[in-house]
Amino acid sequence: MAAGTEVDRAAGVASLSRSAQAGRLFEKPVVLRLLSIGLFAAAWQIAGLIPVSFAFPTFSSTMAAFVRMMADGSLPAAYVSTLQPLVLGVVLATFAGVGIGTLCGLWRPGEWLLIPVFIVLQAAPVAAFIPLVTFIYGIGMTAKTLAVIILALPVIVLNTYKAVRNVNGSLLVMSRSFMGTRWQEVFKIVLPDASPVIFAGLRLGVAAGFVGVVLAELLITPTGIGDLITFARSRADYAGMYATIASVIALSTVTLVALQWIEVRVFRPEKRGG
């Protein structure tokens, strides 16, 4: 399937880089992971003690700032405002993306018409659109949600499309030999067979959604986490700023790991414990 591989490569959804990543966070022994975190924290602490820059707080003061901001409620309040558009945008992008991707994978004219657009959107810096979004939708929830969708949709569409296009042909022949209908083929063969790659796309989409929402908050709408980062910086509260940024990165990592866990638990029973 020449078109399929062409898309993979242009879309930047290289299977090898993903497979390199898949499952990594689960497999490592706990001790090594703790050691790795410990070394990272130690390096951070030393760099902060030197200090490498006046704006580089130590690990301990960053953690203290994190606890302080959790306690005074500023961090939780910011997350409430950030997570709403993020969750909404990701859910919408998931439904739209899996739908469009499946359609394009199964229906040639749809593939011809839509896939190039998403290839362009995937390879191009769509972040440039975010200022534009504010022109139409102001600086509220809608603008933030749209920013999430703009960044998350292309990768979800392209992964779904790629997975549906490259579905195991021998399973399709099997379904035909037992007189499966087209619908049965799609729901009992194509989608289950495509689900690992679709899920990889969803994880990438969620990661892109985090980028989008933070970017929207930094660029246009002074609310949520982005605002907290800007505000802490303006007060030269670098520990607070680092704590906020670290918490976003930690949250996005935890979300991705949780998604993978859910995928294996709920949708891929054969991988459980194997």
């Binding site: 050691l35 975190i37 070394l39 933070v214 930094l218 800007t230 906020t244 940024i245 990592t253």
Partner: peptide, 20 residues
């Protein structure tokens, strides 16, 4: 030791780090 961090940063919202 490094694998975990490379994986985290490869999918982290790096736009949040730009202010730093």
């Amino acid at each position: 030791l490094l694998g975990m961090w490379v994986n985290i940063f490869s999918s982290a919202p790096l736009s949040a780090i730009v202010p730093v």
